[in-house]
Amino acid sequence: MKSDITFGQYVEGNSLIHRLDPRMKIVLSILYIVTIFLAKSVTAFALLTLSAFLLIALTGLSPAMILRGMRPLLFIIVFTAVFNIFWMTGDTLLISLGPIKIYLEGIINAVLIILRIVLLIVATSVFLTYTTTPLALTDGLEQLLAPLKKLHVPVHEFSMMMTIALRFIPTLIDETQKIMNAQKARGADFSTGNLLQRAKALIPILIPLFISAFRRADELATAMECRCYTGGEGRTRMNVLRSTPKDWAAAFVVLVLGAAIVLANLYFPLYGLTL
């Protein structure tokens, strides 16, 4: 196990996107996703791809890094592409080898679907994971969902749980590392043997880890109660989120993009997407 496991993908920065209100970023990423699903034609997709590049440029992140972040999804991307190329039928037959028939529409469809997946990832990662700290995200989410409190949904409690969980991930990773080292020092062996033996070798790690997690939870609860924490009711916050003109400007730009996509679909319906 590596000792330098970092949690989340947040990249420190001070770009315009970094500085947007997290609430707005959540809304913007949803708007952007809707826009992506609205796109139906090659022209619309070209426009979207352009906008995605602009977006990445705005964050100051390296495109190569974002591309690398997609590696886990490579299988899904390849699978959808292959599926579309071989199973789509259309008017323009390109290759016909016995039962295998490849149509131009199939290829275009495959490319557009890949683009759609890639753009979805870019949208969420650029607006959310790469440029917003996990804590800012939960904070933003809590406030966005605040109206649900009227329906007796414990929004604050959920967000507090999420915040605590995020806060303790590095701590627990650290703890795991320590316990693993302690058991290794007693000759524990995690890397040889069959599956069952390896699973059994994890017991000396998992039990102490669970016990320490419960102990920490207990201590944290006591510490919170000592500081009079009683839940979300009447609780004020140190960092109050405020929307600024640039948040609304960003929203306006994304809405214009959405409108442009709809128009592109209507007036330049070059090779429509069928899925």
Binding site: N181, K184, A185, G187, I203, P204, P208
Partner: peptide, 16 residues
Amino acid sequence: RFKAGLVMQYPEYQLF
């Protein structure tokens, strides 16, 4: 590791 036994800090947390 059997030759050089190491007792880590707060070793009571390794009991299982």
